[in-house]
Simulated assay, not measured.
Amino acid sequence: MATAAFEEIVEDFEFIEDWEDRYRHVIEQGKAMAPLDDALKVPATKVDGCASQVWLHTQIEGQVFRFDGDSDAMIVKGLIALLQKLYSGLTLAEVLAVDARGEMERLGLNEHLSAQRSNGLRAMIERIRETAAAALG
């Protein structure tokens, strides 16, 4: 279960055969994101378990989940952009139902990310799921 925005990314990746081009595409997704306000880069929004610095700022309106994020690493900022496309706009229950690992595998990222980047991606997904679960009660 993925958003239409994430499905567009999957379609883009189907046409990009070379891993380096895919990597560049992920980075471009991050560059297209608005920067996170420095006032939101606080310990409460910082994600532990990432090799680089990562901040995720969530907003929940009613039952709808959205988040912004930032990182000091370009590839990680791109991964945040992919997660935004995967999760933003879903209900809290839908966020918890997403198989993020399976969805990201559709992009072929798992075999090309370093162990540290993979751990960071897992940490970001865990933070998103924990936030949604806590908001559901």
Rank of each mutant, 00 (worst) to 15 (best):
G30I: 04
I80S: 13
A51Q: 12
A134V: 05
L90W: 02
S114V: 00
E17K: 12
E61I: 04
M33F: 02
L136F: 01
E7L: 13
A39V: 12
R129L: 08
L36Y: 05
I80Q: 09
I27P: 05
P35N: 07
D18Y: 04
A115V: 05
E126M: 10
Q63C: 00
G62P: 07
G102M: 04
V98S: 04
R24D: 15
L96K: 13
A4S: 07
V10C: 02
I125L: 11
E8Q: 15
R117E: 03
Y23S: 11
K46S: 06
E8P: 00
A133C: 05
Q84L: 02
L40A: 11
V95I: 08
R127N: 14
A32S: 13
F13C: 04
T45C: 10
R127Y: 13
F6N: 08
H25L: 02
Q84P: 01
E8C: 01
R129D: 15
K85E: 11
A132C: 06
D72V: 03
T58N: 10
T45R: 09
D21K: 09
G108W: 11
D12H: 13
G120E: 04
W19T: 04
M33D: 10
Y23N: 06
A135D: 10
I27T: 07
F15C: 01
L113M: 14
L136Y: 02
M74W: 00
E126T: 10
D38Y: 02
T58D: 12
D99Q: 05
A134F: 01
M74T: 10
A4D: 15
E17H: 12
F13I: 07
T45V: 01
